[in-house]
């Protein structure tokens, strides 16, 4: 059961980081506003589903987010592109604040009620006593479908071929008559759509609030650094790794105090550093991804499947 929870959370992370890593490998720029597009996806879906229903939201919200992303690329990012990477980075950084403020202006500073559709809130199956919610299964299904589509598009279609070519040799691709800036815009919009889709699905599985971008923002950077900058497969592995790690860590009550006690040492409240020693693994679970990030940067800076050596 923990495995399934971990995998479903990991796949959601992958949906988020796939778009980010795609944009990064294409433009060489980290999109700081990526998590904000995730938030927009959730809010759009909330709005649309309050007017009609969840399924319409699932369809429309990612398209809206993609449109916004495309417009942002065309009219802002492309203009700053010629000044180099730092201005690009700063623009996306600024955008994340703009989106946050706009969201707070429109939908307020508190969480909105965006429920899981009733048809999906039942149980899918039972393991011992605990049930696996149908919606979690749906989350996994959507993520896997998205993964397959992404793979097929990139590897089997002509557009995918052009994208891959534009990734590594933009000048040559342009010389062959392809509109590389447009390819950039499409990739950026598609990346945002993926984030939006993750928002539609994650927003009601967890919570839709202005703080949601910030809370996943840090994690997805961990995912793409650990997975290897610009590597989709790496992002998948890292997402699953982090999802599973967080889920399992919560379930483990290991602590230094317990370990030392097993070794025959006498650990009591009077032992120096007891408050640190008694910390349980479950209590530090939320910081484990960041620990992994640091360790990964020290041991293997290019990430699990990264190819860049610079």
């Amino acid at each position: 059961m923990s495995v399934l929870n971990g995998v479903s959370y990991g796949l959601l992370l992958f949906m988020l980081s796939a778009g980010l890593t795609l944009i990064f490998s294409m433009m060489g720029v980290l999109n700081f506003a990526h998590a904000s597009f995730y938030m927009l996806g959730a809010y759009f879906a909330y709005q649309v589903s309050s007017w009609s229903n969840f399924w319409v939201g699932l369809l429309i919200a990612p398209i809206l987010v993609a449109l916004l992303g495309g417009l942002f690329e065309r009219y802002v990012l492309r203009k700053t592109h010629k000044f180099g990477h730092v201005p690009e980075l700063l623009v996306t950084f600024g955008l994340s604040f703009v989106i946050l403020e706009i969201v707070q202006l429109i939908w307020g500073r508190t969480s909105v009620d965006y429920p899981v559709p009733p048809s999906m809130s039942g149980s899918l199956f039972k393991v011992f006593d605990s049930t696996f919610q149908m919606y979690r299964g749906f989350m996994m299904l959507v993520a896997i479908l998205m993964l397959v589509c992404l793979f097929l598009i990139l590897k089997k279609t002509r557009i995918g071929l052009v994208i891959q070519a534009a990734l590594t040799h933009p000048d040559t691709t342009e010389a062959l008559g392809h509109n590389v800036p447009r390819v950039f815009a499409i990739v950026f919009a598609a990346g945002c759509a993926l984030a939006g889709l993750a928002g539609v699905i994650g927003g009601n599985a967890f919570i839709t609030e202005p703080g949601m971008a910030q809370s996943v923002g840090a994690i997805i950077f961990v995912v793409i650094v650990v997975g290897g900058m610009g590597s989709l497969a790496g992002a998948l592995v890292a997402s699953l790794l982090i999802g599973l790690m967080q889920t399992f860590a919560v379930g483990l009550d290991w602590s230094f105090a317990g370990g030392l006690a097993r070794l025959g040492m006498d650990i009591t409240a009077e032992t120096p550093g007891y408050s640190l020693l008694k910390l349980k693994l479950s209590q530090v679970a939320p910081i484990l991804p960041f620990l992994l990030l640091v360790v990964m940067l020290v041991v293997r800076p290019k990430g699990i499947m990264g190819t860049r050596d610079d």
Binding site: M1, S2, N5, G6, Y9, D129, S130, R136, A205, F206, I207, M212, S215, Q246, T247, F248, V250, G251, S282, Q283, P286
Partner: peptide
């Protein structure tokens, strides 16, 4: 006897698993 970070946890499923286990 579990303590989790204040206002940070968005997915309580693993905690619930632990309670049920």
């Amino acid at each position: 006897n579990e303590l989790h970070p204040l206002g940070q946890v968005k997915d309580f499923a693993p905690y619930v698993q632990k309670i049920m286990a």
